[in-house]
């Protein structure tokens, strides 16, 4: 319980963007995107919400989670990746390669320009 001091640890959310009612919603845009993709895939019947809840719960209960919940959406993305692998929509290595490709594309894109995957030097080569 070291994370729970007498003050209000539950309300601490420094640096987070605020929703209309003043409360933090997503810490970063990628979290909202991951959330929305999951909702959309469920809408389209790719998996049941129960299946999703189980996948997310499995990630959330792995040892080594942060006490303040700041890695919540990391778990969300891990759960989505795992579920898509299990459903044979994507393979782990495929996702990994695509992730690295996006990182190279970002590094190769001049500041102020939109980052597109075609900017990955290895992809063009």
């Amino acid at each position: 319980m070291s994370a729970c001091k007498a003050s209000s640890p539950l309300l601490a959310s420094a640096g987070l963007p605020r929703a209309a009612d003043g409360e933090p919603v997503f810490a970063e845009p990628w979290q909202a995107t991951a959330f929305a993709m999951t909702v959309r895939l469920h809408d389209q019947g790719l998996f049941s919400w129960e299946t999703w809840a189980e996948a997310l719960s499995a990630e959330l209960h792995k040892p080594g989670r942060k006490a303040d919940g700041s890695d919540y959406y990391d778990c969300w993305v891990a759960a989505l990746s795992e579920l898509l692998t299990r459903l044979s929509v994507a393979s782990g290595p495929e996702l990994e390669a695509l992730t690295r490709s996006w990182q190279r594309a970002a590094e190769a894109t001049p500041h102020g320009k939109p980052i597109v995957i075609e900017n990955d030097p290895l992809r063009r080569g």
Binding site: W30, L80, A90, L95, Q103, H111
Partner: peptide
């Protein structure tokens, strides 16, 4: 520009 691992991973999922 720079993508963190999570940003890049979500981009990868989105594009795929």
């Amino acid at each position: 520009n720079h993508f963190t691992d999570m940003e890049a991973r979500v981009k990868a999922l989105e594009s795929l």
